[in-house]
Simulated assay, not measured.
Amino acid sequence: MQVNINGIETRYVLSNEGGGPWLTFIHQLGGDLSVWDQLAGYFRDNYTVLRYDLRGHGKTALSREPFGIADLSHDLATLLDTLGAPSTHLVGMSLGGMIAQQFALDHPSRVDTLTIADTNGGTPPESRALWDQRAASARTDGMGSLVSSTMSRWLTPDFQRAHPEAVEPIREVFSHTLSEGYAMACEALRDFDVRSKLGTIRCPTLTVAGRHDTGTPPAATQAIADAIEGARFELLDAAHLAPIEQSHRFAALLETFLERPV
């Protein structure tokens, strides 16, 4: 389905076979909603599952102007308004985890629970140049120049060898992401920092990291849990896309977390 969100044609998929509480998944930089196919299938019998493509990703149109993570949070709020969702359980991975944190700060009453994976609460000053470099590479040399290094960070070699059927769609989506959409998102990510505000988040929170994640070290994700009162931290045997590489374990963790009394 397509809907105009803040002037941008946005693709979303809504699975509400169960008609239960809302559960929204937010994908990573250079990804699209398809990365959540397996997990959406697992939860759709008991939840109203929403997935969508971020600006300049998948089949969502490119933003005309530069944007920040707060703008991506506003996009989600508008999408939920359009679909009639007063609140949602929220799951975000990597860039999606940053958007989820921002949304929880911007709209605390609309987040039933917060689950964030392989992400951090802010880009440290020493890493900002890295995001400028990736944005420049995408614009100058195209997404193909970034595929190999990205896949090596995202998924462990063992997983890539054992599960080509899972790896190739992720590689294809990344390769076909609009260069400018990727670059603009890199710049939004570069400027993100909510670390000083995390202590104000009050919703039940689960944080998950991949033990072998070199791009976002597990300590960065654990620091978010340490900053949010009562938050839980889990470490999985995976690289950056831990919810995908360890999908069964992640689904079990999420299911248990969602079902606990609030």
Rank of each mutant, 00 (worst) to 15 (best):
residue 215 G to N: 14
residue 193 D to C: 13
residue 153 R to Y: 10
residue 142 G to Y: 08
residue 120 N to P: 01
residue 140 T to F: 06
residue 109 S to E: 09
residue 203 C to T: 01
residue 211 R to D: 02
residue 235 L to D: 13
residue 164 P to N: 11
residue 207 T to V: 09
residue 228 I to N: 12
residue 237 D to P: 08
residue 150 T to W: 03
residue 123 T to Y: 10
residue 154 W to T: 03
residue 122 G to I: 00
residue 185 A to I: 00
residue 122 G to Q: 00
residue 211 R to W: 07
residue 167 V to P: 13
residue 243 P to M: 11
residue 146 L to S: 09
residue 117 A to T: 12
residue 220 A to K: 11
residue 187 E to L: 08
residue 161 R to G: 09
residue 225 A to V: 07
residue 189 L to K: 03
residue 123 T to R: 10
residue 238 A to T: 04
residue 237 D to K: 10
residue 180 E to R: 14
residue 223 A to G: 03
residue 120 N to C: 09
residue 206 L to R: 00
residue 219 A to P: 07
residue 124 P to T: 01
residue 202 R to D: 05
residue 143 M to T: 08
residue 121 G to P: 01
residue 180 E to S: 11
residue 147 V to T: 06
residue 193 D to K: 08
residue 203 C to A: 07
residue 136 A to V: 04
residue 196 S to D: 05
residue 146 L to H: 12
residue 161 R to W: 10
residue 136 A to S: 04
residue 229 E to W: 15
residue 220 A to W: 04
residue 194 V to K: 00
residue 184 M to V: 02
residue 213 D to R: 06
residue 215 G to D: 14
residue 168 E to Q: 14
residue 128 R to S: 04
residue 185 A to W: 00
residue 139 R to Q: 12
residue 205 T to A: 06
residue 134 R to Y: 00
residue 114 L to P: 05
residue 158 D to A: 15
residue 224 I to C: 07
residue 154 W to P: 01
residue 230 G to N: 09
residue 151 M to T: 02
residue 140 T to Y: 09
residue 138 A to N: 00
residue 156 T to S: 10
residue 138 A to V: 00
residue 216 T to K: 13
residue 152 S to K: 02
residue 235 L to K: 04
residue 235 L to F: 06
residue 109 S to Q: 03
residue 175 S to C: 12
residue 110 R to H: 11
residue 208 V to L: 12
residue 132 D to I: 03
residue 235 L to G: 10
residue 188 A to M: 01
residue 202 R to A: 08
residue 238 A to V: 08
residue 215 G to E: 14
residue 160 Q to C: 09
residue 116 I to Q: 10
residue 194 V to N: 01
residue 240 H to W: 06
residue 236 L to D: 13
residue 236 L to F: 12
residue 162 A to F: 07
residue 204 P to K: 05
residue 142 G to D: 05
residue 167 V to S: 15
residue 221 T to Q: 07
residue 154 W to Y: 11
residue 183 A to D: 13
residue 233 F to A: 02
residue 195 R to F: 14
residue 196 S to L: 03
residue 215 G to W: 14
residue 209 A to E: 11
residue 218 P to N: 08
